[in-house]
Design a protein around this nucleic acid. Structure first.
Length: 834
DNA sequence: GCAAGGTC
């Protein structure tokens, strides 16, 4: 039997299909892992797909020391791994007097045998830097299936992806095979497209596995782990902030954070400049249009004033020139991962979320493989068939017909061409009623993008009108979509038409309004998540598969907040600290230098251990100075954490009030840093996921801090944190009678009132102990009784003054009337919907 | 409780 090992199930399926003589391999399973059996050249073949890397590098639990053999560790399997601990550390650390407890026992993290490197103790970190790394099984089910097949294999073919990580994945898989089968010859198939010709050719021209290339990949793994683990443990333990408060660092995440911090510093250093503009509106025959002084920005106030003095009382303007120019907007290139993430981010989907949704659309057969660099459709892709298929989505009908009517289909091409996977395109018919709104949004974007890449350029007719107002030059510009082209399918990011009335040189038009406005230049904008992804790609940080999750990680460890992306005080402090003592890890150069080293390993000039040890030595020097400055750094970090949590000043004792986590009740509250001397606490306003931001001025009524609360997907409001504050007092309102109590033959009033303890308002029956009736408030705002009861459930109907005006609603959140409303089709986004 | 890279 010939065993073929692919990188993923999807690839295994394709390879089996293309190699099998019948074209129909037999689906089978070993334990839970799908495999594909087929016949070829008179032999039985089996193809298995892995799940990417099946082994993960990790540290052993302890470093041991023996006078005759130095430092070493022992794996679970009893294998002895020597550590490359250098001379200055090459002695048992527990011999030092300060490393021993009063009782004479060695201090943690040092054990009698050596160093406990599993505990995250700072003194163990110099040893961690030199600890051996072992490969542990990460995909036990797959490994079990692989070994089961390998036992029976007469020949093994590694058919993982044709790149460095693929070579490493294949090499790890071969190591697993060798555990159970030492004799079967193993060869490598190298292919870069799932086409019959390419796959046949690869399997007819098998080569040796490139161990140097795999070693290059493994050095990358080791260096990332060693630096990441050592720096993460250091940052976390320099000032331990309690469980679940990991402060991470890494070759990709730290330079990415540094980008955001650098932009924030630029903004802080920005000095706004004053300028003035003169703008207004003119009209011809009642049709208004916008005009502006051709100077645009006046940088000198006297010049602006002089121009303003000439035009401020003007009633008429004369058209001095009309220039028309049409321009073409070319259709966009096919989507790869990065361009999809950027486009989806502009539609409100963060890259991490985009990838999670894309994965599920892919699994449901609605889109092609979502992790690609390629932006050129392969010739093997039947574009016409895909368009015909997309006619199944009613909204795409007109665009599909237009494409199909044009005869030969021409697709746009992007700059990146590789042949591993096609660009991202729709492979199935999506249904807006079956997909959840976010999934539909992404599918719709992908499908429309695909159609757009097959359509004509759009033509925009631009008109530039020059006007004279009392001797001052003004202009007006109009843009009209004259021919929609690809815009018929792809309205994303489209500007609204700026329509001008029909104007000719010499026309005299009315000046309706003019104004002189003082403005200031703006600091450089913060990164959106889409822009940050693009910036990472530009600087060689991360890969298409990792960038989104690395940004998510920076949010998880609270280095980043908000969108557009902003660093927290903690994020800034971490960058400052690492910039000072471990600058290597804060810049993209670490990645480019690593790439260079890996090239040396792949070409055989350097060995894996040479490159890794070099990197360990560099880190060791930095770790020494980090440990030397541990207290400074720990304090800077804990100050930053406090600053991030700070909401204001305690009105009682003047110390900081901060948001604290109550581990006991798993909830948050606002407490005084002066605790236990000061007992001031407040509830956190709003609901749990709401974003809160402290306001500069304390409450004028009670002196407690005021916060800006931004609930998810609704408008922000400002509120004093003190529930007893007069600004927060809301009278109890009787909204109706309790139906449950009436049924039980007693009387109960439903009253909207506020909890003393939490400051949250809710509706509750005066006989709550007996009937248990209570409702949350349907919305924030002044509430009044209407005397009406709900036609669906009999609960009282109240009126609430919301920001959008008065709103009548039944107080019962489980009211069947609400369920009906929810099931009814809702209006979708502004554009590009069904 | 660490990274980054694959993939689910």
């Amino acid at each position: 039997m010939i065993l073929v090992i692919a990188e993923k199930n999807d690839a295994a399926k394709q390879i089996a299909r293309l190699l099998s003589e019948s074209g129909k391999p037999k689906n089978d399973k070993v334990y839970d892992t799908p495999i594909y059996r087929f016949r070829r050249g008179g032999e039985d073949w089996v193809c298995i797909g892995l799940r990417g890397h099946i082994l993960a590098p990790d540290f052993p639990t302890a470093l041991q020391y023996a006078p005759d053999q130095g430092w070493f560790s022992v794996t679970e399997d009893g294998e002895v791994l020597p550590a490359s601990v250098p001379e200055n550390l090459d002695r048992p650390p527990f011999s030092g007097a300060n490393q021993v407890t009063k009782a004479g026992k060695p201090k943690k993290p040092f054990t009698a045998d050596g160093v406990d490197i599993k505990g995250w103790k700072v003194p163990s970190l110099p040893y961690l830097v030199w600890a051996p790394v072992e490969k542990k099984p990460a995909e036990k089910g797959i490994i079990r299936a692989l070994k089961n097949l390998a036992k029976k294999a007469d020949e093994v073919i590694i058919a993982t992806d044709f790149d460095r990580e693929g070579e490493l994945i294949g090499s790890d898989a071969l190591a697993m095979v060798r555990d159970v089968n030492q004799t079967a010859p193993a060869l490598r198939a190298r292919y870069s497209a799932y086409t019959k010709q390419e796959i046949e050719h690869a399997f007819d021209h098998l080569v040796e596995l490139d161990q140097d290339l795999a070693d290059a990949g493994e050095s990358r793994q080791y260096i990332d782990l060693i630096w990441g683990a050592a720096l993460t443990r250091y940052l976390t333990m320099a000032k331990f902030g309690g469980l679940g408060n990991v402060r991470s660092a890494g070759r990709v995440q730290t330079p990415t954070l540094a980008l955001v911090v650098a932009r924030e510093k630029e903004r802080q250093a920005f000095v706004p400049e004053d300028y003035w503009v003169i703008t207004g509106a003119c009209s011809k025959g009642g049709e208004p249009f916008k005009v502006g002084h051709t100077k645009g920005r006046f940088w000198k106030k006297d010049e602006a004033d002089a121009a303003w003095a000439r035009v401020q009382d003007a009633k008429q303007a004369t058209v001095t020139d009309v220039a028309k120019k049409s321009r073409k907007a070319q259709p966009p290139a096919p989507f790869n991962t990065t361009s999809l993430q950027a486009a989806a981010a502009a539609e409100g989907l963060a890259p991490g979320r985009t990838m999670r949704i894309a994965e599920s659309l892919y699994m449901d057969g609605l889109i092609s493989y979502p992790r690609v660099d390629n932006t050129v459709y392969p010739s093997s892709l039947d574009l016409k068939a895909q368009v015909k298929m997309l006619k199944g989505v009613p909204a795409y009908g007109p665009a599909c017909d237009k494409i199909l009517a044009g005869g030969q289909i021409h697709a746009t091409r992007g700059k990146q061409e590789s042949t591993d996977h096609p660009p991202i395109y729709p492979t199935g018919v999506g249904d807006p009623d079956k997909l959840d709104p976010a999934a539909w949004k992404l599918y719709n974007l992908i499908a429309r993008r695909f159609l757009a890449t097959l359509m004509d350029a759009a033509v925009i007719e631009g008109t530039k009108v020059s006007l004279d107002i009392n001797g001052e030059p003004f202009s007006a510009a109009g843009d009209v979509l004259a021919y929609p082209g690809y815009r018929l399918a792809y309205p994303y990011g489209m500007k609204k038409d700026e329509q001008l009335p029909e104007l000719a040189t010499g026309d005299v038009v009315a000046v309706d309004s003019l104004s002189l406005d003082a403005k200031q230049t703006e600091p450089p904008a913060r990164y959106s998540q889409g822009k940050l992804i693009q910036e990472m790609e530009k600087r060689g940080l991360g890969t298409k598969s990792t960038r989104a999750s690395i940004i998510d990680r920076l949010f998880d460890v609270k280095y980043l907040k908000n969108n557009p992306v902003e660093p927290s005080q903690l994020g800034m402090a971490v960058i400052e600290a690492l910039h000072e003592y471990a600058p290597t890890v804060t810049t993209p150069e670490m990645t480019s230098e690593l790439e260079e080293s890996m090239t040396h390993v792949a070409e055989g000039g350097l060995t894996e251990s040479q490159v890794v040890d070099q990197s360990r030595a560099l880190l060791a020097g930095m770790m020494d100075s980090l440990i030397e400055h541990k207290d400074d750094l720990g304090n800077a970090i804990s100050d930053a954490v406090t600053a991030d949590a700070r909401v204001g000043t305690c009105p009682k004792c003047g110390k900081d009030l901060v948001v604290k986590d109550s581990p006991r009740t798993r909830s948050r509250f606002i407490g005084c840093m002066g605790w236990p001397d000061c007992d001031v606490t407040y509830p956190v306003p709003g609901r749990n996921g709401d974003k809160i931001e402290p306001l500069d001025e304390p409450c004028p009524e009670c002196g407690a801090p005021r916060l800006r609360v931004k609930p998810f997907r609704s408008k922000a409001y400002e509120q004093c944190v003190n529930p007893q504050c007069p600004t927060n007092v809301e009278e109890d309102v009787v909204v109706g009678t309790c139906a449950a109590c009436a049924e039980a033959g007693r009387h109960g009033d439903l009253v909207a009132h506020k909890s003393e303890r939490t400051g949250k308002r809710f509706i509750r029956c005066t006989n709550y102990d007996e009937c248990g009736t209570s409702y949350p408030l349907p919305a924030r705002g002044k509430l009044s009784a209407t005397g009406e009861t709900c036609e669906h459930c009999g609960a009282p109907v109240v009126e609430i003054e919301t920001e959008r005006g008065p709103w009548r609603i039944c107080v019962n959140m489980e009211c069947p009337g609400k369920a009906e409303k929810k099931a009814a089709p809702r209006g979708r986004g502004r554009r590009a919907s069904k």
